[in-house]
Write a protein that binds this DNA or RNA. Structure first.
Lengths: 335, 335
DNA sequence: CTGAAAGCGCTTACAG
DNA sequence: CTGAAAGCGCTTACAG
């Protein structure tokens, strides 16, 4: 049988299609009892709005996305989540890549010209003040994704990087580590600064002043992780654990350690951040913080759609992270 | 002014909307002169079909995509191209991730249940015979993407991996290299075998029998590239160039070489394959083969849509690759 | 608070 | 080869 239409629902609830439409669209001016009858009919018939028909009437809702780092590992997951959420809502996702500020301006202009009524801005763009400022002037709402400290006047979806890094530190403490080193991320990556701050605060609160040779600057990629790891592990007194600001660098640490004949995690515990595919594919698997990229993308799209439908105060959603325990910190650890 | 509708075109061409519709849909039974009048009107008015309205009438066309390696570097570019092409054609892209054969069966079933009328199958799935066989039984057309040797009875989009690798060999020959080593890719990656074959054939045709110690097995990722590079460069007589089966491994070769104090490209030329983001981000930049991932995705979607509209003989499209010359093979080379 | 009517832009039978 | 009519499923004014 084919899908139920608004008329099926109307008949079952003994109202007009108009009233069903009102209920669906969160409309006001519907009697509470009527609303319940309609809702019950919708549930019974498993009615779903025909998005194509809706779009035919209202025009297609378009969500634009600015993409500043085309090679980013999280991007494909983000696109998966974003396109799916758009489909479900009958919206269309349009994406433009861009680099510097000038190209961003051009890309944003193209998105808007093509009908984007709201812009999604992932890192690193969402963390650059000049970038956000420029977008602000465009007159469409902005949704920052995974920004470290989103401005109050724009929408935002993120995790709490600070608390997540704290949680990781407590995991290491609980595993018996006290001499923990940290590899910093790309200086341009704002959330990385929060992670560093959490490391420093956790060490300080635990009464473990960070000794010299326990911090190394990384650049976020695997190669920079190799260099940083060598720097930390060449120290005469090795740390017992290394917390890398992301998984790529943590994977590099494991590789360097193993190259030096160290066993992970027995001789050196290693942990990362982000839970990118590499975290599960190296051996031993990396203990890390899972960022719910897919859900963040869906949430961002939903904020965008809500903002398009009825502009309201900017909303900030903080999604829960998960500490994923693998073998790089705990021998024989279960997932 | 708002976009032109089919009625605007009809009025301008002095025909009915019906006839315009026929022309748009490649319909038969239209007088040649009428068709020309209509086409002219379409061009003059810059008419574009309102996909939402069309979908409202015909139902939304859905293209399914099976995703077997969620972390793959090409995936985000592929999704970008595929979603964009789908939008333009008023189709919807739905994606399901999967792993082994059982999960593939389930994922494909879900796609079809959700309305997918054609399935896009990227690597590695499209190169596994069992995988294709299983999908064949589903009754929807299949489009293999970047398959090495696509079966004749399914649609396919790819580049000519063999010719591309040959071209790379000729580039190296032209740069004065004759003692060239090769790092093999993931054994499960079928196109990698074509690249190896091209290397072997090119060496043989050039009269340069491959000496011992000139082949190293890699796994496709950066780490395996490190190991393979060390193996090749520890040989008492070093090769003058290394051709890695993909960019990740080529980047690793550069790193190992530089760690040994070798200058790239003066002491060692290095090249990769695929033109992933890493190829441009390392120093020196990697000479590599550009795969037009975006266009391949668009072409795949178009084949899918054509197959849905009117099932015909399977079509195989071979897209042009590009040899991208960067600094890793030629000192001071321009892009 | 609720509904009858008209229309979004296109396509599907059905005539001629 | 061409067109008038009806309808896809929904929403937008407009009444009441």
């Amino acid at each position: 049988m084919s899908a139920a239409t608004i008329y099926d629902v109307a008949r079952k609830a003994r109202v007009s299609a108009m009233t069903v439409s009102r209920v669906i669209n969160g409309g006001v001016n519907v009697d509470e009892l009527t609303r319940e009858r309609v809702s019950a009919a919708i549930a019974a018939l498993q009615y779903q709005v025909n998005q194509a028909a809706r779009s035919a009437r209202k025009g297609t809702m378009r969500v634009g996305m600015l993409c500043g780092s085309p090679g980013a590992a999280y991007l494909s997951d983000f696109l998966l989540g974003a396109t799916d959420q758009c489909s479900q809502q009958g919206a269309q996702l349009i994406v433009e890549k861009c680099g510097d500020l000038d190209s961003q301006r051009a890309a944003a202009a193209r998105l808007i010209e093509n009908g984007a009524a709201c812009l999604l801005v992932p890192p690193p763009l969402c963390d650059q003040e000049a970038s956000i400022q420029q977008l602000d002037d465009l007159g469409v709402p902005i949704v920052a994704v995974a920004s470290a400290r989103p401005a109050a006047h724009i929408h935002a979806v993120r995790i709490d990087d600070y608390q997540a890094a704290k949680a990781m530190m407590h995991h290491l403490f609980a595993a018996g580590h006290s001499d923990i080193a940290f590899i910093l991320g790309d200086p341009g990556h704002a959330p990385a600064q929060l992670r560093l701050q959490a490391y420093l605060d956790a060490m300080s609160v635990a009464g473990m002043s960070t000794r010299a040779g326990r911090l190394a600057q990384g650049g976020g990629n695997y190669r920079s992780g190799l260099t940083a790891a060598r720097e930390l592990l060449d120290h005469p007194e090795r740390p017992s654990a290394i917390f890398a600001c992301n998984d790529d660098m943590a994977a590099a640490v494991v590789s360097v350690a193993q190259g030096m004949g160290l066993r992970v995690p027995q001789d050196l515990a290693v942990c990362g951040f982000d839970d990118m595919p590499i975290a599960a594919s190296v051996w031993p698997g990396l203990t890390t913080i899972h960022q719910p990229v897919d859900e963040m993308a869906r949430a961002a799209v939903q904020l965008a759609i809500d903002a398009i439908r009825d502009a309201g105060r900017p909303r900030h959603r903080v999604l829960p992270y998960t500490l994923v325990q693998r073998e790089s910190t705990t021998a024989g650890a279960a997932h």
